[in-house]
Amino acid sequence: MIAETASSPIASASPEALGLDPAKLERACEIVVSHIAGDFHPGAQLAVARHGKLALYRGFGNATVDPSRPVDERTLFPLFSNTKVITAAAVWTLVEEGKLRFSDRVAEHVPGFEAHGKEGVTVAHLLTHQAGFPAAEVTPECFMDRERLRRAVCEFKLEWPPGSRSIYHRTAAHWVVAVLIEAITGNDYRDEIRKRVIEPLRLTREMFLGLPEAEDHRAAAMYTPRQTEKWPLDPMVSAPLFRRSGIPGAGGYATARAMAVFYQMMAQGGTWGGVRIVSPRMIDYVTRDFTGDLVDDYTGYPMHRGLGPFSLGQSGHPGLGAIGHPRTFGHSGVGTSYCWADPTSGLSFAFLSNCRRDNAWHNKRMDTLSTLIHASILG
């Protein structure tokens, strides 16, 4: 078990005190250990929280393998698409300030975005992956150049009419969200996300969009499945630009503890540590199922997307646990991670690892772990 320190953003309590079965939590840890022993990934973190307290926070294996560096409580893992919900949370705050509506057309705030037929794209389209340009890309030279980035997203071209289909926008939609945040606030989107979400949660040491060079020593390396004795580094993540740029839909870094806190905030109706991030009504709204049984053409199944996270729904969702309450909501990170909250029980969960497995195996792993965590609820 990772020990609680004075700098921890959340107090700890025993599983029993939080109404959780410690044997179920321990079994989840045993499965993670078995996956590391089976060479599915070098290292991981697992965190479980309930009712504002941390029931479990454990590190496993190695953050880096050459040289060997164990995972500890301060290890930061790449979040990949878990970043999308953090970015979306900044949008929620703008809506609550009356500076934006989910029904607003992006072009109302970003002049020029209407080019190539995009005048009908709304904020809700972006957050539910129905914007119509899933294959659009932003080149690396735009990552740290605000004006270049704005021009790049304005040049995105529609592949189908907005709102007519659901197809996962890997990074394109959230690059537009970043430009939208900058257009409304006049500030760099990374600074706004830090100010609006990360700082109020007291996570400035455990959650980053744009990892400072001074924190590189804490970052877990990301690997691809090994075929020989050596673990191959993921070339995208190992590039300094990836760490610095804070790609709004894929480039965050955090600890599992930080992600458990982020989802505790949502499980508690938008408030953490006496600080209100957004209202309970906002959390209820953005975690609703806006796409229902509409099949996402990228994943091949209904995603039950909200305005940031997706939900388990009545028909289920890979990775969120078969026995979870339908209101359970969260997000995954490509083949590596999963974070979620169950607002009906006050439970939040975060698993982060450092090898990009295929999604079929990853979803099966996460369904097993998430089901165990749901089963740990005693009442």
Results as ranks from 00 to 15, higher is better:
231 W>G: 05
232 P>G: 10
234 D>A: 09
235 P>F: 04
237 V>T: 14
237 V>P: 00
238 S>F: 07
239 A>R: 14
240 P>H: 02
241 L>T: 02
241 L>E: 09
243 R>C: 00
243 R>M: 04
244 R>Q: 15
245 S>Y: 01
245 S>K: 01
246 G>C: 01
246 G>E: 07
247 I>A: 02
249 G>T: 06
250 A>M: 05
250 A>V: 09
251 G>I: 03
251 G>W: 09
251 G>A: 13
253 Y>F: 12
253 Y>C: 02
254 A>V: 07
254 A>R: 06
254 A>W: 10
255 T>S: 12
255 T>R: 11
255 T>W: 11
256 A>E: 05
257 R>K: 14
257 R>H: 11
257 R>Y: 00
257 R>N: 13
257 R>D: 04
258 A>R: 10
258 A>D: 08
258 A>C: 07
260 A>N: 06
260 A>W: 14
261 V>C: 09
262 F>A: 01
262 F>L: 08
263 Y>D: 02
265 M>I: 02
265 M>P: 02
266 M>C: 09
268 Q>K: 08
268 Q>G: 11
268 Q>Y: 02
269 G>T: 04
269 G>L: 03
269 G>P: 08
270 G>Q: 09
271 T>N: 03
271 T>V: 14
271 T>H: 09
272 W>Q: 06
272 W>R: 01
273 G>L: 06
274 G>E: 08
274 G>A: 05
274 G>T: 02
275 V>L: 11
275 V>M: 08
276 R>I: 01
276 R>P: 00
278 V>H: 04
278 V>D: 03
278 V>E: 02
279 S>M: 02
279 S>W: 03
281 R>E: 15
281 R>Y: 04
283 I>H: 02
283 I>L: 01
284 D>K: 15
284 D>P: 00
284 D>V: 00
285 Y>W: 14
285 Y>K: 07
286 V>K: 02
287 T>H: 06
287 T>Q: 02
287 T>K: 07
287 T>F: 03
288 R>N: 04
288 R>T: 04
288 R>H: 12
288 R>Q: 15
288 R>C: 07
290 F>T: 03
292 G>M: 07
293 D>A: 14
293 D>P: 00
293 D>F: 00
295 V>W: 10
295 V>M: 11
296 D>P: 08
298 Y>T: 14
298 Y>W: 13
299 T>D: 13
299 T>Q: 12
300 G>A: 06
301 Y>L: 10
301 Y>F: 10
301 Y>Q: 13
303 M>H: 07
303 M>P: 01
303 M>I: 06
304 H>G: 01
306 G>E: 04
306 G>Q: 05
308 G>F: 07
308 G>T: 06
309 P>S: 14
309 P>N: 04
309 P>Q: 08
311 S>L: 12
313 G>M: 04
315 S>M: 09
315 S>Y: 10
316 G>Y: 15
319 G>I: 12
319 G>D: 12
319 G>R: 08
320 L>C: 06
320 L>A: 11
323 I>Y: 12
324 G>K: 12
325 H>V: 06
325 H>G: 03
326 P>S: 05
327 R>P: 00
327 R>V: 14
327 R>T: 12
327 R>I: 03
